[in-house]
């Protein structure tokens, strides 16, 4: 097959011509393409402060990191399924925020317990019962209303927790929390706005939104139920109950929705997500998350 040699033009080297388009009136300045990507841990001392129990700190970071990782995985499942293209972009941003938190927290867990396990060791090579996330984040996505209801509950509670944790004696956890406060504030605003739109939109959307809330509400209580590690290494989540419920109540009232009157989802032998006792939904989620990594032990990606 005979081909003409491509003519020599400014398109010949793609990156060169991209660089060229940076100058001139239609160039870089016009698009204000940002550059400043800050490392959230820049300048933060990663040495374990004296007086902190490394195992407790590690277990606590796993709890928070697993929450973020598992919810990120659920948000990722929305990709190519969102109700509008603008929401594709928005949901991916939420997922990226949570994934970023998860990576920092799992890394910290591996440092704090002295095992040196990496974020990937912890994400891909633990069994279901070793995951310490609350059950709220692992249930299947349901419809958009259920996912928004879950996000509203999680973002409200986690934002409040991160606010308290920004003063944690571990500088790494404090830095992750300080950054997370801003991210969760945005997640909460996003979830709040959609709760209002669905709750006070069409009769059908109001019905779906209420159903989503009713379904997710039994999982809320677990966010306020302290595991001993949380009491020793972090913030007593029971402290969050009152402000979080007040905040949620205000949103639901404005949306014309009813605060569900449902009992909490029962634990098993008094144990739930923080103890590694989960719903049936976590196993398949982790099987999918881990399948490629586990098929190639020792491989680098």
């Amino acid at each position: 097959m005979q081909h003409r040699t491509a003519s020599t033009t400014e398109d010949d080297h793609v990156y060169l011509s991209l660089a060229e388009s940076d100058s001139g009136p239609e160039g870089e300045g016009r698009w204000a393409y940002g550059t400043g990507f800050a490392d959230p841990l820049l300048g933060v001392d990663t040495a374990l402060p004296p007086g902190l129990d490394g195992d407790d700190l590690a277990a606590y970071c796993l709890m928070l990191g697993d929450d973020a990782l598992v919810l990120a995985q659920r948000l990722i499942e929305w990709c190519t399924r969102a109700p509008e293209l603008e929401e594709e972009v928005a949901l991916a941003n939420l997922g990226l925020d949570l994934l970023g938190q998860a990576r920092l927290l799992l890394t910290r867990a591996g440092q704090a317990d002295g095992t040196g396990r990496t974020e990937d060791d912890l994400a891909y090579w633990r069994e279901d019962h070793e995951f310490r996330n609350v059950r709220l984040v692992e249930t299947p996505n349901g419809d958009f209303a259920y996912s928004i209801a879950r996000l509203l509950l999680f973002a409200t509670a986690r934002g409040a927790l991160y606010e308290a944790l920004a003063a944690h004696p571990d500088p790494v956890l404090a830095a992750v929390a300080a950054r997370g406060v801003k991210e969760l504030a945005y997640h909460r605003e996003y979830a709040t706005a959609w709760t209002l739109r669905l709750g006070d939109g069409t009769p059908y959307s109001a019905q779906r939104m209420q159903a989503g809330l009713d379904a997710v509400w039994p999982l809320l209580e677990e966010l306020f139920t302290a595991h001993p590690v949380e009491l020793r290494a972090g913030v007593d989540p029971a402290r969050l109950r009152e402000p979080v419920l007040r905040s949620l109540g205000a949103v639901l009232a404005e949306a014309g929705l009813t605060v569900p009157d449902v009992p909490p989802l029962a634990p098993v032998l008094g144990r739930a997500g923080r103890h590694g006792v989960h719903t049936e939904a976590l196993g398949p989620l982790l099987a999918e998350l881990q399948v490629v990594a586990r098929a190639h032990p020792g491989a680098t990606w």
Partner: peptide
């Protein structure tokens, strides 16, 4: 596209400033 002003603002943040553009 957005249904209301606030949604437009949030979507603009997500779509047009995802690389620190503003």
């Amino acid at each position: 596209h957005a249904a209301d002003d606030r949604m437009a603002l949030l979507a603009a943040r997500d779509l047009y400033t995802r690389r620190n553009e503003g």
